[in-house]
Amino acid sequence: MNQLVTILIDGITYASWLFIVALGLTLVFGVLKILNIAHGSFYAVGAYAAASFVGWFGTMQFAPSWSLVAMLLAAVAVAVLVAPLCERALLRPFYGRDEVLLVLVTYALFLILEDVTKLVWGVNPYYVTDPYALFGNVEVGAQSYVGYDFMLVAVAVVVGVAVWWGLNRTRQGKLVLAVIHSEEVASSMGVNVSKVYMLAFGVGIFLAALGGALTAPMISVQPGVSVGVIIVSFAVVIIGGLGSIPGAAIGALIVGLARSLAVHTAPVAELFSVYIVMAVVLMFRPQGLFQRIQARKI
């Protein structure tokens, strides 16, 4: 029984930050129709920025609780500084071109950002310890868990609800949904599609950076963290359905539980568990679990 509880808690914890990252990826695809290979690099930049911001707050003698504010500010800074530059300078000239070309552009951006992070932060690992100790330990049965993990789950729920509310209950969100359903019709109705693209890309980058910032206290931030994240994030959105927000949530939960089950019962299968689940889902649902219904072409 204790092992089952441990598997569930570890799987949900892993799924929580993965959902935040995958949510940004699926939002960018849903609006811009771009498979953003560089999404994992924005996650890494967010993690590095969080490490720097938390360290700076520490040198300024702020209370440890301010490290959470530092992580949020790091994600905002990455979105504000990086998103406009990447969207306007690199992606916008290629809108309307072949999808493969856009994938190559984002792959080139991934390679650039990998080198930029090494130039800015070096190759030595960074450790962010202050936020991880803020919430103490939580006793669940006979097991003790880090309270930060439960906070991360709560943040993922808040982020998911906030994105859903923003898309479905605000005017700007309705414009984004209009562009998702039909870019041409939205443009003919006077919607500034370029502005919507910029907004969606900025939010997507913020979510990737936020995921990196929140996981920085749980990992060693070092070169290469972006590669594994982008692979698993793609698995999540493929399982859930490209462009589907509910699919990102269900896909993250499936991947998190599958990985946790493999870690605790068959560690040698951890690397393959995600791909096995993805293959099984695609056998029965080639378009993913929550793929949007496509309009029939005549």
Rank of each mutant, 00 (worst) to 15 (best):
Q3G: 02
V5F: 10
I7D: 10
A15M: 09
F19V: 01
I20H: 06
V21K: 04
L27G: 06
I34F: 02
I37D: 09
Y43R: 05
A49G: 07
A49V: 08
A51N: 04
A51S: 12
F53V: 04
F53Q: 00
V54L: 03
T59W: 09
T59Y: 08
A63H: 15
A63C: 10
L68N: 03
V69M: 11
A75Q: 06
A75C: 07
V78K: 11
V78H: 11
A79I: 08
P84D: 13
C86M: 14
E87A: 03
L90D: 04
L91M: 15
R92I: 01
V103W: 03
V103K: 06
T106C: 11
F110S: 15
L111A: 05
L111W: 01
I112L: 11
G122A: 00
V123H: 06
Y127L: 09
L134E: 04
V138M: 03
A142C: 01
Y145P: 12
G147H: 01
Y148G: 03
L152K: 01
A154S: 03
V155S: 08
W165K: 14
L177G: 02
A178P: 13
A178T: 14
H181S: 12
E183Q: 15
V185C: 09
M189E: 10
G190H: 00
V191R: 00
V191K: 00
S194L: 05
S194C: 02
K195N: 12
Y197T: 02
Y197N: 08
L199F: 13
G202P: 00
F206P: 12
L210H: 09
M218V: 09
P223R: 05
V229Y: 13
V236S: 03
V237Y: 10
G240M: 10
S244I: 04
A252T: 02
I254C: 06
A258E: 03
A262T: 13
A262Y: 10
V263K: 05
S273A: 15
V277W: 01
V280N: 02
V281K: 04
V281N: 09
F284L: 08
F284V: 12
P286W: 03
A295P: 02
A295T: 15
